[in-house]
């Protein structure tokens, strides 16, 4: 079986600063892959390299197709939804407009409406707050809204950047529970960047550890959970 997404020797730089030094990883269809690493390791940059929002080189193959020079909007149209670091909420727009924007490129109105209903099933509070400016939501609500927005695009691959950042443990559990549910029930494929390794290793099937722009460890999540270095550096026991 070939992978849905494959990175081969990907490098990325911000001006003169090189942030990725030849990263290779693959994401199987229907799996959740976690990327762990300390601050500044290059986790965000991996996702940016995929959505082409950073200068990068190397091969990125999605569904058998090289992404090449496709711009971020074209990458999204191919089926990759990127929830960026900081969530990328449209603050002045209403909660409902934020949700609708996730389906911006879709033409199947009836299915979009059905998907919106499903999102309200996952996040009932959205219905009550639909007219409110999204910038006035709490951090946790914004994260859930960003996730719902991404799912509205029916992506074949979801890129999530630190969904747990700054959120209460209960909200983190809720977000990862929904992610696991979508993965099991609908076969959602996701590449999730996380510093909260214990949660990330629980929902993901495989994971890799990034250090200063290089993958230093990769394997099934169950194995990484038992790995000494991972336990010491990321799980804290």
């Amino acid at each position: 079986m070939s992978a849905l997404l494959e990175l081969r020797d990907v490098e990325a730089r911000y001006g003169p600063v090189k942030a990725l030094h030849g990263v290779s990883l693959s994401v199987e269809e229907g799996s959740i892959v976690a990327v762990l690493g300390a601050n500044g390791a290059g986790k965000t940059t991996i996702l940016r390299a995929i959505s082409n929002t950073v200068r990068r080189s190397g091969d990125i193959v999605f569904a058998g197709r090289r992404l090449g020079r496709a711009g971020p909007d074209a990458v999204m149209r191919l089926g990759i939804a990127h929830v960026p670091e900081g969530r990328g909420i449209f603050r002045e727009l209403s909660v409902w407009d934020n949700l609708r924007l996730g389906a911006y490129v879709r033409r199947d109105r009836a299915a979009v409406a059905a998907d919106a209903e499903r999102m309200l099933g996952h996040f009932p509070w959205i219905a009550r707050r639909r007219g409110q400016a999204a910038g006035t939501l709490s951090g946790g609500e914004q994260q859930m809204l960003a996730l719902a927005r991404a799912l509205m695009g029916r992506p074949r691959l979801l890129l999530l950047d630190e969904p747990s950042l700054g959120l209460a443990p209960l909200v983190v559990r809720e977000i990862f529970r929904i992610l696991a549910e979508l993965n099991e029930r609908d076969g959602l494929t996701a590449l999730v960047v996380e510093q909260n390794a214990s949660v990330a290793l629980r929902v993901s099937q495989s994971a890799c550890v990034l250090e200063v722009g290089r993958v230093v460890l990769a394997g099934p999540s169950t194995e990484l959970r038992e790995h000494d270095a991972v336990r010491r550096s990321y799980l804290g026991y």
Binding site: G71, L93, D97
Partner: peptide, 17 residues
């Protein structure tokens, strides 16, 4: 809606296509 989105957040806009 797309134009309002770009005015509100030009960085995220391409990420929704």
């Amino acid at each position: 809606l797309g134009m309002r989105a770009v005015a509100a957040n030009p960085e995220t806009s391409p990420l929704v296509g």
